[in-house]
Design a protein around this nucleic acid. Structure first.
Lengths: 183, 183
DNA sequence: CTGGTTTGGTCAGCGTCATTGACACATTTT
DNA sequence: AAAATGTGTCAATGACGCTGACCAAACCAG
């Protein structure tokens, strides 16, 4: 692979976005823009590399990221209903079924009939599912811990605040529910 | 698969997010784990909602996230070669072609033959491409700025540090190249 | 100049993960 | 009894990755 992109020089003279004359205010705007382009880059690269480790394990088992998400959220809220899981994942039940059905058949996930409402299927991880989820978790844990250590505790707090800010109202409510202590 | 503390319902249900109440070794480990599960959640929800706005615009044009990434990185480094773009995106040329060819045909992206090496195709955005990229950028800018404002400048710096830490060495080198001043 | 490598393009096929629409079934609610 | 809800399933579609194979143009080294 090409070790690094070679500096092939740009043909274009980089026509300034809206052709505005150089001014002090424009400079601030420019910096602001670069700041945000950097955020885009960071999110792209960071998220990609964050998931890469788990993806590798999953691929060996013939699974994908969708399986991981199910394992993760079912592990986080054992006894979650199918409907609640759909709400968190933000996908259709057909999409979920393609992943959940095999996970149940291969005994990673257990389904129990709801006691108050017997239409519900309460999902939880089997020991086999817990083991896989843990393996995936540990892989990502190493990766995230490395980043946390490099960045320091203050940065970690800032990271959390910004990521939370990137979430919409729906996701915020769901996150709150996820973190809610049981009982 | 480490036989770890069964996380399915910790009997000591006191995961109050607020700091360290009881200082037991096991407790610290528990908090550490919750911390990381939170990071997983934040990255999942945050990244999803970060991309949602642009995805909507793209869908109206019959495009997807892959198109956006090409527009973004070509816009960031006008004159970039196909090979360099492949390296940044981390995909195969067949995958890139499916997205790049239509973008060129519909005149969002311009290809110029390299002068020093005429095998190379130097990519840049046409005015049409610049307009679309800007539209997508503005949508994400609003979203990110909101998060930045909510979180504050210190948090933003921390966010950047952690996201950078989540990147692998390759991505770090590529980010450096992307940010390198032209000329 | 010739032969090997690099850059890029393309065909053909496959897998994952999402979508929509339609329908079925059990159970709960009205 | 009828309606609404929770879940499952069939069929078709699309976006976005992948591999393997092969080709052409251009560059580069002997």
């Amino acid at each position: 692979m090409p070790a690094m992109p070679e500096r092939t020089d740009a043909p274009t003279a980089e026509p300034a976005a809206t052709g505005a004359p150089v001014a002090a205010g424009r400079n601030l705007l420019f910096l602001r823009e670069e700041e945000l382009r950097l955020a885009q880059d960071l999110l792209f690269f960071g998220y990609r590399d964050f998931t890469a480790g788990a993806d590798q394990i999953l691929a060996e088992l013939g699974m994908g990221r969708a399986h991981h998400r199910v394992l993760h959220f079912v592990g986080r809220r054992p006894g979650i209903t199918v409907g609640a899981l759909l709400g968190i994942l933000g996908i259709t039940k057909q999409s979920l079924a393609r992943v959940l059905t095999p996970l149940v058949e291969e005994e990673y996930v257990h389904q129990a009939t709801g006691r108050s409402d017997r239409r519900q299927r309460l999902l939880s991880l089997t020991p086999k599912g817990q083991a896989l989820e843990r393996r995936l978790f540990e892989r990502q844990r190493e990766w995230v811990m490395r980043a946390y250590r490099e960045a320091g505790p203050t940065a970690v707090e800032g990271f959390r605040r910004v990521m939370h800010g990137l979430m919409g109202p729906e996701a915020r409510a769901q996150l709150e529910w996820l973190e809610r202590p049981k009982g």
